[in-house]
């Protein structure tokens, strides 16, 4: 089947089996391996991509269901060599260790902050509940999203915990 969609601002098309999952179309056909498969069951969130402004799970939807959609993957977040504030926050606040959940976590955080750029800690924690991380205990992911929120509001982020020590 022919499928076409916008991926990271580029119009792309491909010939896929009807059963091809969106994540496999992105990873195998488009070579965008930043989107990861962690559980094939909609539970871990590693495969999260942005589709028409919303965070969706690309491992449990078919490529053909994304026909005509506007998809953003983690590879499409940085613009003109400038990291997205959420990417910057993850780097500045040690929001990742092994990095495997990170692309999906970052996409979820981006959509969270697009809806609410000043979330409370509880709102952040609820907002990323669908993304599992096994390394960080989420502590520094929350700090990273707080950092990004401050940046997106044009404010100075709070200092890192280790800077206070």
């Amino acid at each position: 089947m022919q499928v076409s969609m916008s991926v990271n601002g580029r119009q792309v098309s491909g010939d896929v089996e009807p059963r091809t999952l969106l994540v496999h179309f992105l990873r195998e056909d488009r070579g965008l391996t930043g989107t990861h498969v962690g559980c094939e069951s909609s539970y871990c969130g590693a495969c999260t991509v942005k589709m028409d402004g919303k965070a969706v799970l690309s491992c449990t939807m078919l490529a053909v269901q994304a026909e005509g959609a506007d998809i953003t993957t983690v590879e499409g977040l940085a613009e003109n060599g400038e990291l997205h504030p959420v990417q910057e926050g993850f780097w500045e606040r040690h929001g990742l260790q092994c990095g495997f959940c990170t692309p999906g976590m970052i996409i979820s955080a981006v959509t969270l902050l697009e809806e609410n750029d000043n979330p409370s800690e509880e709102e952040i924690r609820r907002g990323i509940e669908g993304n599992l991380c096994r390394c960080t205990g989420y502590h520094n992911i929350v700090r990273a999203i707080e950092y990004a929120g401050a940046k997106m509001r044009g404010e100075e982020p709070a200092p890192a915990e280790w800077e206070n020590a």
């Binding site: 590879e75 940085a78 500045e92 280790w162």
Partner: peptide, 22 residues
Amino acid sequence: VVRRREDPALIQGRGRYTDDVK
């Protein structure tokens, strides 16, 4: 404290894990 040097690739989806090798 040094920002992690592995992070720029990982936060941009450019980290290479085994399943990414073609």
